[in-house]
Amino acid sequence: CKVCGDVASGFHYGVHACEGCKGFFRRSIQQNIQYKKCLKNENCSIMRMNRNRCQQCRFKKCLSVGMSR
């Protein structure tokens, strides 16, 4: 997965992504979610083991690796 490094389940929203990141991105855009501000200057490292800790940084990384509708 380009977002968290887990095993990708396919090509989702323009990038190779796992089911977790695919679902997270889908919910984020469909529900237009505004995530809580990052407590670490929006510089969190997103990996499989910690991908749920900072939703703002995870969504930012989804966009930075090329995920789009």
Rank of each mutant, 00 (worst) to 15 (best):
C1T: 09
K40V: 09
Q56H: 11
R51W: 11
K40W: 14
V65S: 09
Q31R: 09
R48M: 15
Y13E: 11
A17W: 03
R53D: 15
E19S: 05
V3N: 02
L39G: 10
V65E: 10
A17L: 04
C54A: 05
I33G: 08
S28V: 07
M47V: 12
N43M: 08
S45N: 15
R27K: 09
H12L: 05
C57M: 00
V65M: 12
L39P: 11
S68Q: 15
F25K: 10
M49L: 12
N41R: 06
R51K: 13
F24I: 00
V3Y: 03
F24H: 01
K2N: 12
N50T: 11
N52S: 08
H12E: 05
N41E: 11
R51G: 12
L39A: 13
I33A: 08
V65F: 03
C54S: 03
L63C: 06
V7H: 10
C62M: 08
K37C: 06
S45Y: 12
R27P: 04
V3A: 03
C62N: 01
E42N: 12
I46L: 09
C38F: 01
S64Y: 06
K40F: 13
K2M: 08
N52I: 09
Q30V: 11
A8T: 08
N52Q: 10
V15C: 04
Y35N: 05
F25G: 01
C18L: 03
Y13G: 05
E42S: 10
R26I: 15
H12A: 09
M67S: 00
A8Y: 02
D6H: 02
S45C: 12
R48A: 14
I46R: 11
R26F: 08
C4V: 00
K60A: 12
K36A: 10
H16W: 13
Q30N: 07
S64N: 08
G5W: 04
I46F: 05
H16D: 15
Y13Q: 04
H16S: 12
K40A: 14
R69W: 15
R51Y: 11
G23R: 11
M67F: 02
C18P: 00
R53L: 14
Q31H: 12
H12R: 03
E19T: 06
M47P: 09
D6R: 01
G20D: 15
F25C: 04
N32T: 07
R58M: 13
A8G: 05
H16M: 14
L63N: 00
F24A: 00
K36P: 10
K61C: 03
V3G: 03
S28M: 09
K37V: 08
R69Q: 13
Q55M: 06
L39S: 14
H16A: 10
